[in-house]
């Protein structure tokens, strides 16, 4: 029982913070919107897209990058919420969380879920703005995308949590941008399809294919059209389990590098 009381409180707190910090929401939405309105508009002419599943007709570039931008929202959120736990003003609240008399893995997973739900809310608002802009997946897509976003958010949040627990050098967000977010985002199918990448470099295309972010984006892409993409789902789940496992290991007080903090 006390497990669920704690889980509910952690989710509630995150929700209150989300509502209370309008600036955070605006900042989180500006990034993908800039990509959608400016980058995609400019790129539209440069990149010819053929018809590949799940699309059944020619699509605009804006339509193509929507799943990638949803992934981007989850990626930034995941990194931000996990790293802020450790490095800045949330340090105290993280310590508080870890002194709760509940299993640590449960507390970390609750925190992860809370951050993910915020990501999903932001994604839905983003999809709403895109719809106003005229980019509309089928209605079923708005529902089918929810579980895909959940798995994606959890996977990327777990990645952030893992990084925060095992890597010493990522002391600031700039480092994370350079070494995690940019490579992950650009080495994926978020901005260009993999077959396009393969024309340039098969090696790069292979690297993109094993990138869990690519798989998450493809899962979202299919879900937006109401179609399951089981290999992508499987790969993303696998990454989630691996990242979460290392994160829980990293926060184990007997082994974790948390002990670097004097």
């Amino acid at each position: 029982m006390s497990w669920f009381i704690a889980l509910r409180a952690i989710l509630h707190r995150e929700a209150l913070r989300f509502v209370g910090q309008r600036g955070r929401l605006v900042a989180a939405l500006v990034r993908p919107l800039v990509w959608l309105f400016i980058f995609a508009a400019g790129f539209r002419a440069a990149l010819g897209l053929s018809i590949t599943p799940p699309y059944q007709t020619y699509i605009t570039y804006e339509t193509y990058i929507i799943p990638g931008l949803l992934g981007m929202i989850c990626l930034f959120n995941g990194m931000q919420s996990s790293l802020s736990l450790v490095y800045d003003r949330e340090m105290g609240s993280m310590r508080l969380l870890l002194t709760s008399p509940l299993p640590r893995w449960w507390l970390l997973m609750a925190k992860l879920l809370a951050g993910t739900l915020v990501s999903i809310l932001q994604c839905m608002i983003f999809l709403g703005i895109a719809a106003i802009w005229g980019i509309r997946p089928p209605v079923v897509g708005y529902f089918a995308v929810l579980p895909a976003l959940l798995v994606t958010g959890l996977m990327l949040g777990a990645l952030g949590l893992m990084l925060s627990s095992v890597i010493r050098q990522l002391e600031n967000f700039a480092g994370v941008m350079n070494f995690v977010i940019f490579p992950m985002f650009f080495m994926s199918s978020a901005l260009y399809p993999l077959w396009k990448m393969r024309e340039v470099s098969p090696l790069l295309a292979d690297l993109c294919a094993v990138n869990p972010f690519t798989q998450a984006v493809e899962m979202i892409r299919f879900a937006l059209y109401g179609q399951p993409n089981l290999p992508a789902l499987g790969w993303t789940l696998l990454a989630l389990v691996a990242f979460a496992g290392v994160a829980v290991w990293g926060y184990d007080p007997a082994r974790g590098v948390q002990s670097r903090k004097g």
Partner: peptide, 21 residues
Amino acid sequence: PTMDLDLTVRRNLMYFAALHG
């Protein structure tokens, strides 16, 4: 500090209470 500046005093304390079940 362990408390959230944007939440009320009561909410902060209720959060902690919940962490203790």
